[in-house]
């Protein structure tokens, strides 16, 4: 019996592994293709080989030689980090209030914030363009940070309030009894316990800001605040006769690196089950 059972599990394992492999290849193939393109020289670009005949870093050298890309990279990093930080701080406070307090209009507030997230962003582009022109923040960092925060906040509030609801109320009472002010109770007890939620939210918000194309292309007009996704569409190659695919691929590879780093960095801080042992039953 044991032998048959063992065979069955091996069979199952092989089956699952194959299925996983298919999914992984399906998901990663475009990325591999881009990586391959970025490593080809302009002559072999269109040869259709997945594995480049010769590896060339020409494309990478080229994009870093232009201010167009370097500037865009700096803009992307700055704007995404600032927007993420602000959205997470405000989101934390709002989510805490929503999870803990009963105030009139609470459900309405949550509903409205979700509504914002559901709103088609395209329909807001023209009004935002006009408003930002009027306010004089068109084509500036704040001009992108503000809409990013607006659209990231509902996401942040929603994710975070779910985490806050998991934290036993009694811990806060205990902190109060131990002599903590409400602020201290929040900083020393609640915030550390909500940390996994905060980091998860930070990752989601950062990815949202980093990958945005629509606002980036519509609310910027110069290198001054154009982010990488928008800048990519302006790539022309070093001369006008050259195919920019190589440079675009190289840039695409470069901008995935910060996201991977960001996720890896925060992922280690997401420890599941942090609240276990606080209360029994």
């Amino acid at each position: 019996m044991a032998g048959i059972g063992g065979a069955e599990t091996t069979q199952k394992k092989v089956g699952w592994s194959l299925l996983n492999l298919v999914v992984v290849i399906y998901a990663l193939f475009p990325v591999l293709w881009i990586l391959s393109l970025s490593l080809k020289s302009s002559k072999t670009l269109a040869d259709g080989n997945l594995i480049p005949r010769e590896i060339s870093f020409e494309n990478y050298r080229n994009i870093f030689a232009t201010t167009e890309f370097v500037r865009a990279l700096a803009n992307s990093i700055g704007i995404a980090i600032i927007a993420t930080a602000i959205a997470v701080v405000f989101g934390t406070m709002a989510a805490y209030a929503i999870a803990r307090l009963d105030f009139p209009g609470k459900n309405l507030l949550v509903g409205v914030s979700l509504l914002i997230a559901m709103f088609p962003q395209v329909s807001l582009v023209s009004p935002l363009f006009e408003i930002e022109r009027g306010l004089g923040i068109f084509d500036t960092w704040p001009g992108l940070i503000l809409p990013y925060i607006t659209f990231a906040l509902p996401l942040a509030i929603y994710t975070l309030s779910a985490f806050f609801r998991e934290i036993p109320w009694e811990l806060e009472k205990a902190a109060k009894m131990d002599g903590a002010t409400p602020g201290q109770a929040f900083r020393k007890v609640i915030a550390p316990l909500a940390a996994p939620g905060v980091f998860t939210t930070a990752i989601l918000v950062f990815i949202f800001c980093w990958n945005d194309f629509l606002f980036a292309i519509s609310l910027t007009s110069t290198e001054q605040s154009r982010t990488v996704p928008a800048a990519l569409s302006f790539f022309t190659g070093s001369s006008q006769f050259e195919d920019p695919a190589g440079s675009i691929s190289a840039a695409a590879v470069v901008i995935t690196i910060p996201i991977i780093l960001f996720v890896l960095f925060f992922q280690r801080r997401i420890v599941a089950g942090l609240t276990s042992g606080a209360v029994k039953g």
């Binding site: 009472k173 205990a174 007890v189 316990l193 276990s276």
Partner: peptide, 11 residues
């Protein structure tokens, strides 16, 4: 105060 659930700080 000692709570029924103990309310220990898990972290």
């Amino acid at each position: 105060m000692v709570f029924q659930s103990y309310a220990l700080y898990p972290h």
